[in-house]
């Protein structure tokens, strides 16, 4: 899994840049994400994000694009984004875990 990560990230970045070819690259890497791990880790996020609305301070993350998700979590991990709650959550997430979470939330529906 760890060796697969660079391909995933580069695919994600290509997509972020608008590269059409990235779509082809993204699909196989998304399948490589650890779905069960993503689902387990997501329960930590749901505590705060599970009832978010469009105007909430805590944003909706269900359905968030994978690329954006990875970028934001890594920015929190690097403390480039300010909220200490999110910095704290992101601090212990490895790249593989962030990828698993991103893949999970990309298709997850907000709890009803």
């Amino acid at each position: 899994m760890r060796r697969a990560m660079p391909a995933r990230i580069s695919a994600a970045l290509l997509l972020a840049m608008g590269g059409g070819a990235a779509l082809c690259l993204l699909a196989p890497s998304a399948q490589g994400a650890d779905a069960e791990l993503g689902r387990y880790l997501s329960s930590e996020c749901t505590t705060c994000h599970g009832a978010s609305k469009s105007d909430s301070t805590i944003p909706i993350i269900h359905g968030l694009g994978e690329v954006h998700f990875v970028e934001v979590i890594k920015a929190y991990r690097d403390k480039a984004l300010p909220n200490p709650v999110m910095q704290n959550i992101a601090a212990r997430l490895g790249d593989e875990e962030i990828a698993a979470l991103a893949a999970y939330f990309a298709t997850a529906k907000k709890p009803k």
Binding site: T46, T47, C48, A51, S52, T57, I58
Partner: peptide
């Protein structure tokens, strides 16, 4: 002020997580 808004959103989130 942001903390307060965050706490209110958290309350909505966690109670939905606990009670559905």
């Amino acid at each position: 002020k942001q903390n307060y808004k965050e706490s209110v959103d958290w309350y909505n989130g966690i109670t939905a997580d606990i009670f559905g």
